[in-house]
């Protein structure tokens, strides 16, 4: 697996006191969520009908995010829709270093077998 490079996420940091928060990677808008185990990013617009994921809710013990508009729900691990087969959301790894947040795409890392 090729190591992709991390990029610093503008507009958010570990100091940010309200998550989810807006940021971007390579010109693409993302929403950063703070989960029980760290941070995770997803694309800004829901792949269904483009509702903003700023209003998305973490669910299933913070392993999934669901869109507020029609409850399409996506795994944060690989972005696959769990109740909307065929739909996928872009997900991003997010890490903290020295108070700054860095992100990179996570979809390529998925190796999960099973349903989709």
């Amino acid at each position: 697996m090729s190591e992709q490079s991390w990029s610093q996420l503008p507009g958010v940091s570990a100091e940010t006191n309200k998550f989810p928060a807006r940021s971007s990677i390579a010109g693409e808008g993302i929403i950063v969520f703070k989960t029980k185990t760290g941070y995770r990013g997803v694309q800004r617009a829901c792949p269904h009908m483009k509702a903003t994921m700023m209003a998305g809710e973490l669910t299933a013990n913070d392993t999934m995010v669901r869109c507020p508009l029609h409850v399409f729900t996506f795994r944060l691990s690989d972005g696959r829709g769990v109740n909307c087969p065929g739909f996928e959301i872009k997900v991003y790894e997010v890490k903290e270093e020295g108070g700054q947040l860095y992100g990179r795409s996570a979809n390529e890392l998925s190796l999960t077998p099973g349903a989709r």
Binding site: T59, A60, T73, V82, N83, T112, P113, G114, A115
Partner: peptide, 12 residues
């Protein structure tokens, strides 16, 4: 209740 409407495949 989520268990009533959230159909999930038990993959793992």
């Amino acid at each position: 209740d989520e268990s009533n409407w959230f159909l999930q495949i038990a993959e793992d």
